[in-house]
Amino acid sequence: MIELASVIRDLREELEQAVAAAEGAELRFELGTIELEVSVALERSAHAGAKVRFWVVESGADATVGATRTQRLTLALQPTLTRSGNPPFVSGTTGANEQ
């Protein structure tokens, strides 16, 4: 199983690589809402100060989860660029009025 935070971090890194790889290309794709659907297992520790953690169940790993119950979770992520707050483009050159 993989922590949900790791899945989102890896997705962010992949998208940043796509934006960087598209530098100078003429064809543009604006990145819109990303819907991420995962199967998650919930883990809660019994000791004081414990927190709840979400683990993403890897494909085909349902049988290994055993007694842990899994749920399907859909996240709608709206990517924006830190500096401008605009949606990113995963390809294409920046226009005259864009940042």
Score class of each variant (00 low, 15 high):
Ile2Leu: 09
Ile2Ala: 00
Leu4Val: 00
Leu4Arg: 00
Ala5Ser: 11
Ser6Arg: 12
Ser6Ile: 01
Val7Ala: 07
Ile8Pro: 07
Ile8His: 02
Ile8Gly: 05
Ile8Asn: 11
Arg9Phe: 15
Arg9Asn: 14
Arg9Ala: 15
Leu11Asp: 11
Arg12Gly: 00
Glu13Phe: 04
Glu13Leu: 10
Glu13Ser: 14
Glu14Arg: 12
Leu15Arg: 10
Glu16Trp: 04
Ala18Pro: 02
Ala18His: 09
Val19His: 04
Val19Phe: 11
Val19Pro: 07
Ala20Trp: 00
Ala21Pro: 01
Ala21Cys: 01
Ala22Asn: 13
Gly24Phe: 05
Gly24His: 10
Ala25Gln: 15
Ala25Asn: 10
Glu26Gly: 14
Leu27Ile: 06
Leu27Gln: 10
Leu27Asn: 06
Arg28Gln: 04
Phe29Ala: 00
Glu30Lys: 12
Leu31Lys: 01
Leu31Asp: 08
Gly32Val: 06
Thr33Cys: 05
Thr33Val: 14
Ile34Cys: 03
Ile34Ser: 00
Glu35Ala: 13
Glu35Trp: 07
Leu36Ser: 03
Glu37Lys: 10
Glu37Tyr: 00
Glu37Ser: 08
Val38Asn: 04
Val38Lys: 03
Val38Phe: 06
Ala41Asn: 02
Leu42Asn: 08
Glu43Trp: 12
Glu43Arg: 15
Glu43Pro: 01
Arg44Tyr: 09
Arg44Asn: 08
Arg44Ala: 11
Arg44Gly: 09
Ser45Phe: 04
Ser45Lys: 11
His47Pro: 01
His47Cys: 08
Ala48Arg: 14
Ala48His: 12
Ala48Thr: 12
Gly49Trp: 05
Gly49Glu: 06
Gly49Ser: 08
Gly49Lys: 04
Ala50Trp: 03
Lys51Ile: 10
Lys51Val: 15
Arg53Tyr: 13
Phe54Arg: 14
Phe54His: 13
Phe54Tyr: 15
Trp55Pro: 01
Val56Asp: 04
Val57Glu: 10
Val57Met: 14
Glu58Gly: 14
Ser59Glu: 15
Gly60Glu: 02
Ala61Tyr: 08
Ala61Ser: 10
Ala61Asp: 12
Asp62Thr: 09
Asp62Val: 03
Asp62Asn: 14
Ala63Ser: 15
Ala63Phe: 13
Ala63Thr: 11
Gly66Asn: 02
Gly66Asp: 11
Gly66Ser: 03
Ala67Met: 10
Thr68Lys: 07
Arg69Lys: 12
Arg69Cys: 04
Arg69Gln: 09
Gln71Met: 06
Gln71Trp: 07
Arg72Gln: 09
Arg72Pro: 05
Leu73His: 04
Leu73Ala: 09
Thr74His: 05
Leu75His: 01
Leu75Ile: 02
Leu75Met: 08
Ala76Gln: 05
Ala76Trp: 06
Leu77Gly: 05
Leu77Trp: 10
Leu77Pro: 01
Thr80Cys: 12
Thr80Phe: 14
Thr80Ile: 15
Thr80Asn: 13
Leu81Asp: 14
Thr82Asp: 06
Arg83Met: 07
Arg83His: 09
Ser84Gly: 11
Ser84Arg: 13
Pro87Val: 01
Pro88Gln: 05
Pro88Thr: 02
Pro88Ile: 01
Pro88His: 06
Phe89Met: 03
Val90Ser: 07
Val90Thr: 11
Val90Met: 12
Gly92Asp: 00
Thr93Met: 11
Thr93Pro: 00
Thr93Arg: 15
Thr93Asp: 13
Gly95Thr: 12
Asn97Ser: 15
Asn97Asp: 15
Glu98Met: 04
Glu98Pro: 03
Glu98Phe: 10
